[in-house]
Design a protein around this nucleic acid. Structure first.
Length: 256
DNA sequence: ATGGTAGATACTCTA
């Protein structure tokens, strides 16, 4: 079993990359973020034609998450309990073959101290509640997506440049730690303990990818019972080097 | 010093 996450920065633009990637990577579930596409316009037929199952939770222009799977997705949950119809669409949960999956696009936060930053911290508090209500810590569950947080300085190409800045600030790292303490294990770090230089996002600007000036902000975390079955986790930089790439690379975890 | 690029939408916002 393989589970992957990929911020595609518009499913409309990235559809060829996603279809090609699925062709050459036999993943069972692919969680997408920043689809930037309302559900009615999501190119679901391209996936259905390939025998895949699709669940979407999108809005115009911004945000949007989706799941693509090789089998049916059940108990689909869209957004937090009590969200207004107009709330930003950033979280989608579903069950695939008994595994509970949470797909998140955590807010970027814009700038430390801004209104968007406060929204990010509030959203992270809600996400901890969501984990508690949607998953059993003793069960098989995964939370993955664009977390928009580099958990430690090991996940940052230049920690002194990024110190205290958005994606790296202490308050957001602490809020993420509160979520992790619920019972999640970083499946990538489990297989790459202490290794620097592994990033999942590189800014389009200033030739970030060519210089490997990146951050590891896309993550796959699992509960203990899945972590012991996880035999590998990696970041696939191949699609990031294509023409017209997303600024994020897919992250994959494999289980026995 | 506050750059640089990309995407969706509409003459900016978000990342």
């Amino acid at each position: 079993m393989k589970i992957a996450t990929w911020n595609v920065n518009s499913i409309t633009v990235r559809l060829p990359h996603v279809l090609d990637w699925l062709e050459s990577n036999s993943v069972d579930v692919l969680c997408l973020q920043e689809t930037k596409c309302i559900d009615e316009k999501f190119p679901r037929q391209d996936f259905l034609d390939r025998g895949l199952y699709v669940e979407t939770f999108g809005q115009p222009t911004y945000n949007g998450v989706a799941m693509i799977a090789t089998g049916p997705l059940s108990d689909v949950r869209r957004g937090f309990a009590g969200d207004e119809e107009t709330a930003q669409r950033r979280v989608l949960a579903a069950t695939w073959r008994g595994v509970r999956l949470i797909n998140v696009y955590i807010p970027n936060g814009s700038e430390v101290g801004s209104e968007k930053y406060a929204y990010k911290l509030r959203w992270l508090q809600q996400l901890r509640q969501f984990c508690e209500s949607e998953c059993k810590v003793t069960g098989e569950a995964v939370i993955c997506g664009d977390f928009n947080i580099a958990p430690t300085d090991l996940d940052v190409h230049d920690p002194s440049l990024w110190e205290g800045r958005i994606l790296c600030s202490p308050a957001e790292r602490e809020a993420l730690e509160v979520i992790r303490e619920w019972g999640w294990i970083d499946l990538f770090r489990q297989h790459h303990a202490g290794e620097g230089g592994h990033y999942s996002w590189w800014d389009y600007r200033a030739a970030g990818f060519r210089r490997n000036h990146g951050l590891r902000i896309d993550h796959i975390w699992g509960t203990r019972s899945l972590a012991v079955r996880c035999v590998g986790a990696w970041i696939d930089k191949v699609p990031r080097a294509l023409d017209k790439p997303s600024d994020h690379a897919p992250v994959v975890a494999e289980f026995v």
